[in-house]
Design a protein around this nucleic acid. Sequence first.
DNA 1: GAGTGGTCTAGACCACTCA
DNA 2: GAGTGGTCTAGACCACTCC
Lengths: 233, 233
Amino acid sequence: MNPPARSSFRDIKAEMMRRIATRVWPPGALIPGEEALAQEFGAARATVNKAVQELARAGVVERKRKAGTRVALHPVREARLAIPIVRREVEAKGAAYRYLLLERRGGFAPEAVTERLGLPRGKRMLQVRCLHLSDGAPYQFEDRWINADTVPTVRNEGFRDVGPNEWLVENAPFSRAEYSFFADRASADEAKALDVNEGEAVLVAERATWLLDRPITLVRMVHPPGHRVVMEV
Amino acid sequence: MNPPARSSFRDIKAEMMRRIATRVWPPGALIPGEEALAQEFGAARATVNKAVQELARAGVVERKRKAGTRVALHPVREARLAIPIVRREVEAKGAAYRYLLLERRGGFAPEAVTERLGLPRGKRMLQVRCLHLSDGAPYQFEDRWINADTVPTVRNEGFRDVGPNEWLVENAPFSRAEYSFFADRASADEAKALDVNEGEAVLVAERATWLLDRPITLVRMVHPPGHRVVMEV
DNA sequence: GAGTGGTCTAGACCACTCA
DNA sequence: GAGTGGTCTAGACCACTCC
C-alpha cells in the first residue's frame, strides 16, 4: 500500500528503470508527467525531475516540453573512453614507464597538418617526435605538431624529460578536441621506432585540440600491432 | 559592477570554467564553498550546487564532503562514442545502406570465442557472417557468434533481410558490454568480402555482450582501410 | 565536533511546443 | 492557449569526513 515511505531520487530512478526494463512502460510509451510521478512516489517534483533527467541523459527516455517524456525507441548506447596521460596509462597497467625524445625542431608544417587545424598553408610550427615505452618495450610512437602562437611558452620547453602530452595537459588546457582512430600500415620511421616490420598493421589515434578557436596541436599516436583500445559501455 | 543580474546555473558554470581556464583558480586550488558562491552570484545554493556538480561530473573539479571542492590536478578527459546500428550509421552519412547475408550456420565455436565469453569449450553456437554496404561499397564485414541459450528466438530468425546487429538490438537487450578496437591484417575471407588485398591494415571493432551473467554474442566487425572512428570529446 | 557537500521540499515562474 | 518540462528559491536536515 505505502511503498518506500521515503523516496530518494535514486529509488525513483531505479523504479522507473525497472518499469522500462520489464516493459511495464514499453519502448515509445508516454510515461506520466512529473507532477503525477511526484504524487505517486510521495516526493517533490524537483526530486522526480532529477531522476528523470538522469534517465534522459543516459538516453533511456526522451523528453520534450509539452509532448512529455517517452521511453526511447532506440536507446543510444554510448561507449566511453578515458583519455589519460600516456605515462599514467602505462603505470596503471603496473608497468614501468619510460620516455624518449627522438626529435624536436621548428619547421613548415605539412599541408595535411595545417588544413586539419584550420591554419594557413606553410605555417611554421614546432614538431616533436618521441617514444613512450612500457617495461622497456615500445608502447606508443608520438608525432606531434604544436602551434607556438597559441602556446608561446612552448618555445622554452625542450621536452627532454617530460613528454609534450604531459606538458600540454599542464600548460595548455584545450576547450575543444577531435579524436579519431584508424588502422594504417607502419611507415619506415614508425616501424623503426616501434621495432616492427614496415607495413605492419598499426592502430593510429589522432587528436587535434583547440583553445577556443585557436589551434593548439595535432598529434598522431601509433601503437604497435596487437594493441587494444578498450572502452567502457 | 553587477554582472548578470540574473544568474542561471549555466552562467555560474561558465564563469567557474573561465576562472579555472584562466588560472584564477589554479589546478589543485580549493574553491569557495557553495554558500559563498551562492552569495557571490546572488543565487540559491541549489543553483550553485547544480553548476558545481556538472563540473564535477565533467572531471574539472573534485568534491569531498568537509574537505571542499578542488580544481582537478589531472582533469580526466573522456571521449564518447555513440554506438548506433550499422544501418543508421551509414544512413546518417547520407549514403544508401545495403545488407548482405553471407552465411548462417550452427557449429562448435572456436575456443577463442567461448573463452572470451566465459562459455565452456566446444559450445555449440550460431555463427552469422554478413556484409554491410554503403552506397554499394563494402562498409563493414561482420563475423558474429550468438549464444542461442540466452536468446532462444534467434533459432527462428534467418537473418536474410535484417542484420543480426539490428535484430539483437530489438530482441535481446544487453546489460553489460565489452568493446574494443585494434588494428589487424585482413584475413583471406575478410579481404575478399571487403574487396581489398589480403594482409591489408584493417580496423577491427570487437564487442561482447551479456544479459546479466549470460553471454549473448561476440562480434568482430572489420572495416576497410581508411575507415575512421570519430569520437566526441 | 564541526564544516562541507548531498539531497529534499513546496512553491513559483518561465520557455518551449503542440494543437 | 494550454500543458509539460526547465529552472530557480529559501529553508531544512542529513551524511560523510576531517580534525
